[in-house]
């Protein structure tokens, strides 16, 4: 017996089964990997700056501010950093030789590069979704939608899911543990949910909207953006009024 026939038909069904969702999954994985390495590099770069100019470094809060500040710097020196942060340029830090400063600026350049690559990937994901899943894209950030696709293993599966499951996608760990059940998973990153006074309620409505959008994209292939916008504006109205009936 020969397995050639089986290999051939398996190859055919693989070719048929792979879809744009697999590409999106890979892209979001790449995005997450970049995110991780960026955080790692940021930490080392920050520590190096802390060695050089602790007074300035202690004033910087978070990655965004660090990148924004260091982007403006042409040459790393006490005066330049101090003038941006409006502090005294007198420092107790170790006066870095040229090699140290070069290391720091190389790290900062790399972080900036990663930031740019992330933006490119985000744009590419957005382009793909514009073509394939316009309704889903109208609801939220392309990264969030891609995360949902990653977790649900494809838009078709996402569309078949009950919206209560979409609501807690990404919170599987807490879902079955003892204690309180989670009210939201990755959709918490949506501003309508994270800025809401009642995120649980907002997450519920948003999840049902995502479910409807996924169904429209996969099954009917109709444009129902207006209807989706109505639902979303309902959430933002509720957020404003603080009226959570129903």
């Amino acid at each position: 017996m020969d397995n050639k026939k089986y290999i051939e038909s398996a190859k055919k069904s693989i070719k048929k089964g792979l879809s744009v969702d697999d590409l999106i999954k890979r892209q979001i994985d790449a995005f997450d990997a970049l995110n991780k390495s960026e955080n790692l590099l940021f930490k080392t770069a920050y520590d190096l700056l802390f060695l050089y100019f602790p007074e300035a470094a202690s004033l910087i809060k978070g990655k965004d501010q660090f990148i924004n500040m260091t982007k403006k710097i042409n040459e790393i020196s006490y005066d330049e950093i101090a003038s941006i942060l409006k502090i005294d340029s007198e420092s107790m830090g170790y006066d870095l030789p040229k090699e140290g400063k070069d290391t720091l600026s190389a790290l900062i350049k790399e972080i900036d590069e990663i930031e740019k690559t992330k933006a490119v990937i985000e744009e590419k994901i957005e382009n793909i979704m514009q073509k394939e899943y316009p309704n889903l894209l109208s609801i939220g950030e392309p990264i969030l939608i891609a995360r949902l696709i990653r977790l649900s293993n494809g838009v078709r599966k996402l569309s078949m899911m009950p919206s209560s499951k979409i609501q807690v996608l990404g919170a599987e760990k807490n879902l079955f543990s003892k204690g309180r059940r989670p009210k939201y998973g990755v959709i918490f990153s949506h501003p309508l949910v994270s800025n809401s006074k009642n995120p649980g309620k907002a997450a519920k409505t948003l999840a049902s909207t995502i479910s409807i959008a996924a169904r429209a994209d996969v099954i009917s292939k109709k444009d129902i953006k207006d209807e989706l916008m109505k639902r979303i504006s309902k959430i933002s109205k509720e957020n404003q009024n603080g009226n959570y009936k129903g």
């Binding site: 089986y6 290999i7 038909s9 398996a10 069904s13 693989i14 089964g17």
Partner: peptide
Amino acid sequence: SEEVGIPLVLLAEKRKNIFPIIY
């Protein structure tokens, strides 16, 4: 799963006694 099946098919190409079925 098609995605997981890819290494399986590649393995079957090397080992003649594996008959892959993606189903």
